[in-house]
């Protein structure tokens, strides 16, 4: 029942409504759009290098004759998949580590939190930047794991402090007295009670991961060729943004709209799930 209430509240919010609509349109464009275009993203048109947008090439072509429309949509697919995967992995990890540290306490807590502190102190950008070019031959999923490994720490601290108070609630104590194993209590009683925090966090992590991927790709440390993402396209386009603006405008514009729509939904979700919160 609660989910229906939340959904109704979410759709009553005008910002969240426009965010949802924009996101649906963008996902549809990314996955259905390529069927409408005349070219495949691997095609090269040797008669049109760097040609501006026209009836044939809707968003122009690149310096090696690729159709910008097809390539950009292909890049957007990859960016969306990376965003969703990174958000799921990092929020899941944050929930596990935070709940275990908070519920078990003692040396488990100290060890896990020390690890969190260490990961926060390590310059994540640098570590990913050193490792990811070495993954050139490997699957891009490794890059997702790497990005997720450095985004979960702050949430897990929040989860831990909320677990500390949940641990003393009657229903958790009752479950403990009934002899239910502790890991089961965590999965059945602690984590579900953190659901609103985790849903909001996962949503905002999607946009953070999309930006993070694009940022790393901007310096060539992210997705490696021949794969494309919005980040690699923006990096390519920004080098000649004055002379050939269509190389930069389309991927950059789509990235901004994508991030904006996810953020709007995340903000609306926060209002809908957690009416008392102000941040």
């Amino acid at each position: 029942m609660r989910s229906r209430v939340v959904l109704r509240r979410l759709l009553r919010n005008r910002q969240a409504r426009s965010g949802c609509l924009a996101l649906i349109l963008l996902v549809a464009l990314a996955y259905l759009g390529p069927y409408a275009g005349p070219y495949d993203w691997t095609d090269k048109d040797f008669l049109a290098f760097l040609s501006p947008p026209s009836a044939d090439h809707w968003w122009g072509t690149t310096s090696i004759g690729q159709d910008m429309y097809a390539v950009t949509l292909r890049g957007m697919q990859k960016s969306i998949v990376i965003g969703v995967l990174v958000a799921l992995i990092s929020t899941g990890l944050a929930a596990m580590v935070g709940a275990f540290a908070g519920y078990f306490g003692g040396w488990v807590d100290r060890l896990l939190m020390w690890g969190v502190d260490l990961l926060l102190v390590l310059p994540s950008f640098l570590i990913i930047a050193i490792i990811s070019p070495r993954l050139r031959g490997a699957s891009w999923l490794w890059f997702v794991v790497l990005l997720a490994a450095f985004t979960w720490m702050i949430t897990s601290r929040v989860v831990r402090s909320m677990t500390l108070s949940l641990r003393e609630r009657e229903y958790v104590l009752a479950a403990a007295y009934m002899g239910i194993p502790r890991w089961k209590i965590i999965f059945r009683h602690i984590v579900p009670n953190l659901a609103s925090l985790l849903i909001i966090d996962a949503t905002l992590n999607v946009s953070a991961a999309i930006i993070g991927e694009a940022a790393l790709s901007f310096f060539g440390f992210g997705i490696q060729p021949p794969d494309v993402s919005l980040g690699t396209l923006i990096a390519e386009g920004s080098r000649n943004a004055t002379g050939y603006p269509w190389l930069f405008a389309f991927p950059a514009g789509l990235l901004v709209v994508l991030v904006l729509s996810v953020n709007l939904i995340g903000d609306g979700l926060r209002d809908a799930l957690d009416p008392g919160s102000t941040s």
Partner: peptide, 22 residues
Amino acid sequence: SFTIMAIPVFVLATLLAVATYS
């Protein structure tokens, strides 16, 4: 502020540089 927060700094900086150049 919502719009600006959705624009990554490398897009913003490139836009500024292009605008100044023109």
